[in-house]
Computed example of a mutant assay.
Amino acid sequence: MAYRGGLRASEVTHLKVGDIDSGRMLIRIEQGKGRKDRHVMLSPGMLDLGRNYYREAQPRGWMFPGRNRIVPISTRQFNQALGVACDFAGSGKKISPHTLRHSFATHLLESGAGMGVIQ
């Protein structure tokens, strides 16, 4: 979600199941940076991954619940999970959620998207 949507760590951790609009292929981000709401594109690949995750985890309320399930995972837990995934993949590099956000923007730019779309 962080890479395919270009989301900030806090935006990923605070996603709710109802924020995914598969009909319009959008994700609603509530209270993002600057306490502003916005929509980001939902790619077909991200929708498939999200559906697979949903079937497996069956989250209620928060898309990525914390240990308590009443609260979302923390950005620290998200960072740790990303580190474990990178170690598992054997990349040998330290990757942060912000690295994923930058990679998203770079790949959009390289594919010919305009700066207005990326911003």
Rank of each mutant, 00 (worst) to 15 (best):
M1S: 07
A2Q: 05
Y3N: 10
Y3A: 07
Y3Q: 12
R4M: 13
R4T: 04
R4F: 07
L7E: 00
L7P: 00
R8N: 04
A9N: 08
A9G: 04
S10C: 15
E11G: 05
V12Y: 10
V12R: 07
T13Y: 00
L15Y: 14
K16V: 07
G18N: 13
D19F: 03
D19N: 01
I20E: 15
D21N: 13
D21I: 10
S22K: 13
G23D: 04
R24S: 09
R24V: 13
R24E: 14
M25C: 05
L26M: 02
I27A: 04
I29M: 03
E30I: 05
E30Q: 09
E30K: 05
E30W: 13
Q31N: 09
K33H: 01
K33E: 00
G34A: 12
G34T: 14
R35A: 04
R35Q: 04
K36G: 00
K36C: 03
D37W: 10
R38T: 05
R38F: 10
H39F: 15
V40H: 06
M41R: 10
M41L: 12
L42G: 12
L42R: 07
L42P: 06
S43P: 15
M46S: 14
D48T: 13
D48H: 13
D48N: 13
L49K: 10
G50T: 05
G50H: 06
G50I: 08
N52C: 08
Y53F: 11
Y53W: 11
R55Q: 11
E56L: 04
A57K: 11
G61N: 01
G61M: 00
W62V: 00
M63D: 05
F64L: 02
F64R: 05
F64C: 02
G66E: 02
G66W: 05
G66C: 06
R67W: 11
N68F: 13
R69H: 09
I70A: 14
I70L: 15
I70G: 15
V71M: 13
V71W: 10
V71T: 12
P72R: 02
P72Y: 05
I73Q: 03
I73M: 06
I73W: 09
I73G: 06
T75A: 07
T75Y: 02
R76E: 01
N79C: 14
Q80W: 08
A81V: 01
G83V: 08
V84S: 11
A85S: 06
A85N: 03
C86A: 14
D87R: 15
D87C: 15
F88E: 13
F88S: 14
A89M: 11
A89T: 11
A89S: 06
G90Y: 09
G90D: 10
S91E: 14
S91K: 15
K93T: 07
K93R: 11
K94S: 12
K94G: 11
I95P: 04
I95F: 07
S96M: 07
H98E: 01
T99S: 12
L100G: 03
L100C: 08
R101H: 03
H102N: 03
S103M: 01
A105L: 06
A105K: 09
A105N: 04
T106E: 05
H107W: 06
H107P: 12
H107C: 02
L109F: 09
L109A: 03
E110L: 08
S111A: 11
S111Q: 11
S111L: 10
S111D: 15
A113S: 12
A113G: 13
G114Q: 02
G114E: 02
G114M: 04
M115A: 08
M115F: 13
M115I: 08
G116I: 07
V117A: 14
V117P: 06
